[in-house]
Write a protein that binds this DNA or RNA. Structure first.
Lengths: 349, 349
DNA sequence: TATGTTAATGAAAAGGTATTCATAATTTAG
DNA sequence: CTAAATTATGAATACCTTTTCATTAACATA
């Protein structure tokens, strides 16, 4: 026999089990008192009919859905966010939350996504690699739907966010390059309008300026190909840089390919390359990229826990945190003479 | 003012607009007749109150949710499935479907996922890179929840599926290698229990057997690292292979790194490497991997359309399709002398 | 045994919408 | 200008749960 849709209701189960519908509900929801005898009867009947409580009906009365919205960009062209997506999803699952997923473009306006999320009564929204406008975030929060962001923040917004210490990361890289006696560094920006790229550059430039070192600059739009092209432009000048700090790893890999295979340069002898993220490919022997590892697990854990926390306690004020990254020294950048010079060399994972 | 949860109902809107609740519903659902005047009044009031229809309540009565379940594995360690996830999600979005996402392990049992999907009344389920047991699939279908799979099938199962022509792909690769005069090919399997790996190997071996060519064999579990290790074992023997066909690209990249950087071999002069998938990295200049491109866009389009189609027409029989892949000739495999020999050389995307 | 407590049960209401049906308003045809 | 047909509206119902409340059964205490 073929059921057109799942039409088995608690009433039918009740009938078969010879109890009231209320008892069926109690047997399933672990709330309220049920005798072991009726529970058994109910579960037997339910199994026989293939009954399953209807989450929609339940949510209508409990006003809880156990659903969260997840908005993520850049998932296909940056393995870092693939990993974030993976970890987020699994963490939510483990904590009993259902995930409603929206994949967007980095620069996409979320104004048409939000209504859908709210319509479906998600209890909270997690945004990463995309930016929720300040007004939109306020709107969500005002309706009791907490928002948490990863690696993105909006000044003064009433929402939680968790970022890698991008500014400090940029500083670390600059110090490393100067210590290793680089004379002519360059910065390869991601997208001009992302705080991640901006902050990494700010930290980087801050140190260089202190030492009165000027830096070249190009834009790679956070993609392999744009970075490859930018690297060619950069390295093909009469006065090429001797080091390139890229706003993320995927660009750094593009730059390495451009330098090595495009222009036949030796890395790190002729040019040092440093990235940011520490995606899996950075440790591959073809690249061996020196980079700043983002504390991805901690960012994920913190943001999920914070989000669920604020769902349970709506009065709680949103939390924001900057979590330090760590330098991962591999082979793509020349090292300071001593090497001992106090650098923390992180192990590969 | 802070609303505890979204508590604005159609009744409040009706009150403010001075119409009945029914009219509010009609104004929003584009069903039934509404005069332009009342529609305007309703929408005005709704905007003022920040009203949004409650999808849970709606689904309860319409018995439709516009939600589909998406179960995907391997998303973090195989860029191919990252892209599938991305395309699937966007396609569903474009067609007005909400996606409930579950990320699982390849070998994970889906028995605990399914009840959750059914509980939340998804109207269909799309599974990729994971396997739904035959009985589970039947169960879903029996309750009117169509199932579609990408790159996975279960013999005799009553579900839709769309696969790349893995068997034929394996044959193509074998022919190419033989034509280019390779004497000692090897196959690097993914996971032993996946039809993708099995079918690719079957096609590959079929041609080799025809020509009485024996092949070496190793297992790489579909990961870069395992493949790297397997390649070392393979290439470090006294009688190493002169070609390695890998069950997917990510393994092929591991094999290339092992050969080039681990053992100092020249590719393709000393060993040819061929992959399967055509992930973005395969076209990077450090690899330039010859591979079989999966028709990812077509598989995604077909499976989504088929799933929605069967949701609308539950009586329709599930459709299955094998879609041919195409050989992408790059630089990681020695070519037949003529090169003209009739090979379709695909352009990079 | 009588009485007071606690546990178990069922009837009924509530949650927010879509939809049916009957009625009212409007338009069209004659 | 009336009758007929059409369109717009509102009241009431249904969707499937959870939960409250009142009632009954079971149990323990004196």
């Amino acid at each position: 026999m073929k059921h057109s849709r799942n039409s088995v209701t608690s009433i039918e189960v009740a009938k078969l089990a010879g109890v009231s519908q209320s008892s069926v509900s109690r047997a399933f929801s672990h709330e309220g008192p049920v005798s072991v005898k009726t529970r058994r009867k109910v579960l037997d009947a339910a199994r026989k009919l293939g009954y399953q409580p209807n989450a929609m009906a339940r949510s209508l009365i409990t006003r809880r859905t156990s659903m969260v919205g997840m908005v993520i960009a850049n998932v296909h062209n940056n393995p870092f966010y693939t990993e974030v997506l993976d970890l987020l999803s699994r963490k939510f699952q483990k904590l009993g939350q259902k995930v409603m997923l929206f994949i967007v473009n980095r620069d996409q306006n979320l104004d048409d996504i939000l209504p859908q999320l709210l319509e479906y009564q998600v209890e909270g929204i997690l945004v990463t690699a995309a930016t929720l406008s300040s007004t939109m975030a306020e709107e969500c929060e005002r309706w009791g739907r907490p928002v948490a962001m990863i690696n993105r923040y909006v000044p003064g917004v009433h929402a939680s966010w968790f970022c890698c210490a991008n500014y400090e990361g940029g500083k670390m890289v600059a110090k490393l390059l100067l210590d290793a006696n680089h004379q002519r560094p360059a910065f390869l920006a991601g997208s001009e309008d992302t705080t991640t790229s901006i902050d990494r550059e700010r930290g980087f430039m801050e140190i260089l300026n202190q030492e009165k070192v000027e830096a070249l600059r190009e834009i790679g739009e956070y993609t392999y190909q744009d970075a490859y092209d930018a690297a060619i432009r950069l390295l093909d000048r009469k006065d090429p840089p001797d080091a390139i700090f890229c706003a993320n790893d995927i660009m750094a890999l593009g730059v390495m390919d451009a330098a090595k295979n495009g222009l036949g340069l030796k890395i790190p002898e002729e040019v040092s390359i440093i990235g940011f993220d520490d995606i899996p490919m950075s440790s591959w022997s073809s690249y061996s990229l020196t980079t700043v590892r983002q504390p991805i697990q901690r960012m994920v854990d913190a943001s999920v826990e914070e989000l669920l926390n604020r769902i349970e306690n709506p009065e709680r004020e949103p939390l924001q945190e900057v979590i330090p990254g760590e330098l991962v020294i591999r082979g793509s950048a020349r090292m300071p003479g001593g090497l001992s010079s106090g650098w923390v060399i992180s192990q590969d994972r």
